[in-house]
């Protein structure tokens, strides 16, 4: 009986073990192995030592893609947290049509990123895009949203915010609802303003949510692919070349499998490091 149960335990987790071995453990190891090789899939693999790693250090495009990611995050994260938190605070109150508003903000979250990018590619159009036509009606100059190297990445960051903000509104709402009502009541009696309440009661409680939003946005920023792939192809002047798009190009366009694997490995390390640092910083800040 006991033995039987042990066997069934292992049986229950066996698909997971098999899956993790084939699709996670082996690939991680293989990735490391590949990074010391040069391989275009059709020719035999060739051991090249640390060449791939040396190449990364001189690779201006990889550096550029990381810099682009920073630009993206610098715009995306504050925008995301600001808008999501603001709307969540509003939706947390008793207002009319709450379900409608929540539903509207959440809509872009469910549709595919492809739809969003195709849509915004048109909205961002230079000559005929809705946004520029609107700007011109107001008497402003046209902006090359996706064709001006200064604007292209910010444009993508704005679009990504539009796409994801609904999700973060929901997460903040969950956080806000966990603030005990009695705290507000007590502080009201002591004459605290609403702003003070927000600052001293609400913020500390939703701090973990804030951290999560930050980490999820960061990971999202490092995973940016479909947006530049569809909208700009990484241009203009590589201003929207994302790290994943660059890995994709190296791997599936030039078939530099060894080099692409090296880039993937290093990118993964960078992401882990960034997330780790973010955590340290935020956790230290907490009282």
């Amino acid at each position: 009986m006991r033995r039987n149960k042990t066997i069934s335990s292992y049986l229950l987790v066996s698909p997971y073990l098999l899956h993790i071995f084939v699709f996670v453990l082996f690939p991680v190891g293989f990735s490391l192995y590949l990074s010391f090789h040069q391989w275009n899939i059709i020719s035999p693999m060739e051991y090249v030592g640390l060449t791939n790693y040396e190449k990364v250090l001189q690779d201006q495009y990889f550096l550029k893609s990381l810099r682009n990611t920073l630009v993206f995050l610098a715009i995306h994260i504050p925008l995301q947290i600001g808008i999501a938190l603001g709307l969540a605070v509003i939706l947390n109150q008793k207002i009319w049509f709450r379900a409608f508003f929540r539903g509207a903000f959440f809509m872009p979250v469910v549709v595919s990123g492809v739809v969003v990018t195709i849509l915004w590619q048109q909205l961002y159009g230079y000559e005929m895009g809705s946004i520029n036509l609107f700007l011109m009606k107001l008497g402003f100059e046209k902006i090359g949203w996706l064709t001006d190297p200064q604007w292209a990445m910010p444009s993508i960051a704005i679009m990504a915010t539009w796409k994801n903000v609904g999700l973060y509104i929901i997460l903040f709402l969950v956080g806000l609802q966990s603030v005990p009502k009695s705290l507000y009541e007590a502080s009201s009696l002591e004459g605290a303003t609403r702003w003070q309440q927000f600052w001293h009661i609400t913020l500390p409680v939703i701090n973990p949510t804030m951290m999560m939003v930050m980490i999820l946005s960061t990971i999202g920023g490092f995973s940016l692919f479909i947006e530049p792939y569809v909208m700009t192809g990484g241009g203009p002047l590589n201003s929207t070349l994302s790290a994943v798009l660059y890995i994709y190009k190296q791997g599936f366009f030039y078939y530099h499998m060894g080099y692409a694997a090296t880039l993937g490995l290093l990118l993964a390390l960078i992401i882990l490091l960034v997330v780790f640092i973010q955590r340290m910083v935020i956790e230290n800040k907490q009282p």
Binding site: S9, V13, I20, V22, F23, V24, F26, P27, V28, F30, S31, L34, I41, I219, F222, S223, A243, V244, I247, G251, F252, M257, A260, A261, G264, L265, L267, A268, I271, L272, V275
Partner: peptide, 28 residues
């Protein structure tokens, strides 16, 4: 069991970028 659980938490932190290329080769 506990080992497996921690391992699970660990794999969750691994970015997909790491396994993209080797997984493709696996498929090939």
């Amino acid at each position: 069991r506990n080992l497996l659980f921690y391992f699970l938490l660990f794999t969750m932190t691994l970015p997909f970028q790491l396994t993209l290329i080797p997984n493709y080769i696996l498929m090939v």
